[in-house]
């Protein structure tokens, strides 16, 4: 029999429990493994702007990105983010390849003054296989 480590929630038997929702940990399953996190600031004075982060993993990792498009650096939304009204639109997104994350903002018009976007990224070591 294969050896493994299983921690269940209180009230569940680690030897017999089969529902993964009742487990704290099970060595049979992979977890998300942190690689890097940080912030990239993108300033937009025209209709579009972009930034990058170089991860150099050599493969495309599992990643998640949030963006704060306000001035207080406190109201983050998960990318991608769209907003549109009668004045126009803005689209904020992030992509990845085997070396970088790309953070981009595209809007229908340039802002009256420069806008700053704070992209917060989490990169995991998990290879997406893409």
């Amino acid at each position: 029999m294969t050896q493994k480590i299983v921690l269940t929630k209180s009230g569940f038997n680690a030897v017999t429990e089969t529902d993964a929702r009742n487990k704290i940990f099970d060595s049979s399953y992979e977890t998300l493994k942190y690689f890097s996190s940080g912030e990239v600031t993108v300033a937009r004075s025209g209709a579009s702007a972009s930034g990058t982060f170089t991860h150099n993993l050599g493969y495309i990792p599992f990643f998640i990105v949030y963006v704060d498009y306000s001035a207080d650096d406190a109201d983050f939304v998960q990318c991608p983010f769209y907003f549109a009204d009668f004045t126009g639109y803005v689209f904020i997104a992030a992509w990845a390849d085997s070396t970088k994350l790309y953070f981009e903002v595209e809007a229908s018009v340039a802002p009256p003054s420069t806008l700053t976007y704070h992209f917060e990224y989490k990169i995991f070591r998990n290879d997406t296989g893409l």
Partner: peptide, 23 residues
């Protein structure tokens, strides 16, 4: 989930292909 479009970039859900106009 993630998707890899023909341009080679990997997108998050509800994102499009990077190397195209976003609308």
């Amino acid at each position: 989930a993630f998707a890899k479009y023909p341009d080679g970039y990997v997108s998050l859900p509800w994102e499009g292909q990077r190397t195209s106009t976003m609308l």
